[in-house]
Amino acid sequence: MNLYLSQVMAIIRKDFVTEFKTRELFSSMFVFAVLVMLIFIFSINLSVVKANQVGPGVLWVAILFAGTLGLNRSFTLEKENGCLQGLMLAPVDRSAIFFGKMLSNLAFLLIMEAFLLPVFMIFFNVELGSHWAPLLAVILMGTLGFSALGTLLSSLSSNLKTREIMLPILLYPLMVPIAIGSVRLTGQILDGKSLADMMNWVGLILCFDIIFISASIMTIDHILEE
């Protein structure tokens, strides 16, 4: 178990060191997310529409679109110079590769979201007040499912020539339940409701998080083979 954990940690550390040196992933994800928000801001008349009604949708669309950039890069990096083969040669459980990549994707997304949230609050003139904690919990739950499914599909699409196109085509339809749940929860939190009033949506997101992680563990062996 110790070896398993150290292998997972080594993959995360390797991804962080690579990102620290190249600064490719975070900057492109963040700039893209801000641009998505700007486009929406210019196309929505906030004096007519309430920010709490459209803001959550815009926030999650920005997260999903920008996150897809990072997920696309995730396994492409492993394919350069045949690095994934090098990993597969080592006595490492395939699920450790999945968890390492998933957790580093999750961390990158959460860091990007930590910078994006203040931008969102400024653009939509949103006051979070005492709703910080439930909003962060929703973002964490939504991003967990997104990174789990995204990592799995990224490993699948990385073998394809059209991977940049295939990942969103595969990812977005499957993300619908988590995306809808996250948008609804974010909206209700901004309206001042407590998480206890929204347990159905919380349950739905958690269920899909578990389904995506379990399905990934069950299938990653076959996806990474040949």
Binding site: L3, A10, K14, T18, L77, E80, L89, A90, P91, V92
Partner: peptide, 25 residues
């Protein structure tokens, strides 16, 4: 050892080999 190096281009030799050493426990 193949014609593909299995090495991460943006890491240093030390970071690459230390990574693989950890993978082999």
């Amino acid at each position: 050892i193949s014609h593909a190096s299995f090495l991460y281009a943006d890491l240093s030799p030390l970071e690459n080999i230390r990574f693989y050493a950890t993978m082999y426990g």
